[in-house]
Computed example of a mutant assay.
Amino acid sequence: LATKQKGKNPDDVKQVRDYICQNYFDVRTFGAVMSTGDDPCGIVRGPVQLNFARSIDPVFAQDITITRQARTTEDRQQSGETEMGKKSIIPYALYRGEGYVSAMLAQKITGFSEDDLELLWTSIINMFEHDRSAARGKLCMRKLIVFKHDSALGNAPAHILFDKVSVKLKDGVTTPRHYSDYDISIDKDMPEGVTLIEKL
């Protein structure tokens, strides 16, 4: 469809963007830059934005030695059948990530729906369950807290709501190695028009 609309007026470009938003969940959710290449069709501002997660406490990376059994070139095979390598691991870390959903962008730009939002929550809760690897260990979601506003423009600033969730080390713990080493507290006294939902 984008090729067919190449060189057309802005209304045609909007038609292409609408088609892509309707058919691709990732664009409808997070947006996309589609203004490059041979068939540009503009930029879509997605309603969902996620910050980079940060560890609650400093992490300590450790290196472990691994053996590679399959050398891929003849030059490397001349010095032996195996070679040594290393892999970095983090014994334990608790990460906190924050995100935002703009109801106005969902309504006016991409058509992101309530059903899409519920699918996003389900995906976040389960995102590590079917993508296991030795490198990620037992990475898993521990909490998913949602602040739902009555108004499409929001009933309270995001930073005030994020401050309602506190994560602290328990007394006597200096080096966290388990989720149980932390106290997670949630101030459930919400501003007017805001509902707290614990999805996990």
Score class of each variant (00 low, 15 high):
64 I>A: 09
65 T>V: 15
66 I>L: 12
70 A>P: 00
73 T>V: 09
74 E>N: 13
75 D>M: 05
75 D>Y: 05
77 Q>M: 14
78 Q>L: 14
79 S>N: 09
80 G>P: 04
84 M>K: 15
85 G>V: 03
85 G>P: 01
86 K>F: 10
89 I>R: 06
90 I>K: 03
94 L>P: 00
94 L>I: 04
94 L>V: 05
95 Y>F: 15
99 G>K: 03
100 Y>N: 09
100 Y>M: 14
100 Y>Q: 12
101 V>R: 03
101 V>A: 08
102 S>C: 10
104 M>Y: 04
106 A>Y: 02
106 A>S: 12
107 Q>Y: 09
108 K>T: 15
108 K>C: 10
111 G>V: 06
114 E>F: 09
114 E>Y: 14
115 D>E: 15
118 E>K: 15
118 E>A: 09
120 L>Q: 04
120 L>P: 02
126 N>P: 00
126 N>W: 00
127 M>Y: 15
128 F>V: 00
129 E>I: 01
130 H>C: 04
130 H>E: 10
130 H>W: 05
131 D>M: 06
133 S>P: 01
134 A>Q: 08
136 R>P: 00
138 K>E: 11
140 C>H: 11
140 C>I: 07
141 M>R: 01
142 R>F: 02
144 L>Y: 09
145 I>E: 02
145 I>A: 05
145 I>N: 04
151 S>N: 15
151 S>V: 03
152 A>N: 13
153 L>K: 10
153 L>G: 14
154 G>L: 06
158 A>V: 13
159 H>A: 07
